[in-house]
Design a protein around this nucleic acid. Sequence first.
DNA 1: TACAAATGTAAATAAAACTTTACATAATGA
DNA 2: TCATTATGTAAAGTTTTATTTACATTTGTA
Lengths: 64, 64
Amino acid sequence: MKNLIRVERARHRLTQGDLAEKVGVSRQTIYAIENNKFNPSVTLAIKMARYFEVTVEYLFDSEE
Amino acid sequence: MKNLIRVERARHRLTQGDLAEKVGVSRQTIYAIENNKFNPSVTLAIKMARYFEVTVEYLFDSEE
DNA sequence: TACAAATGTAAATAAAACTTTACATAATGA
DNA sequence: TCATTATGTAAAGTTTTATTTACATTTGTA
């Protein structure tokens, strides 16, 4: 696992669509990021981290 | 000013080319990011933050 | 079970990141 | 001053991110 978006999303009881709306992207973008289809921009990463009140490093740089 | 790459680069006495090499991109990419021509990927942002031993938020999310 | 909501997935397209090349200007040092 | 190094900038092209649409499958719940 490379990022913890799914985990934080579960913790906050948000659907992919909910999170997408909160950070201003499409649901498929959330899906793709969660499933490591691609690397988001740092701006989007910061928006997500902010929303979940965690650091970018925690959300995207977690080992294992 | 939106990001502190130029500042950290000065602190570490690195040229754009040096930093580019360290994080594996072209010098023009560093130039473009420093000058807010575009938003790097979170992976590149993390590489830079790591190199400078600062957080992504500090490097890219500093106010003013 | 049956329906609704959420997720997985794909394909076409648009937009943006990033590379490469190239050159002009500014800064630094011998 | 002269030469070297660093920076600013641009344009063309490649790669990747992100959108939109669409549909199948899974999961939750009445």
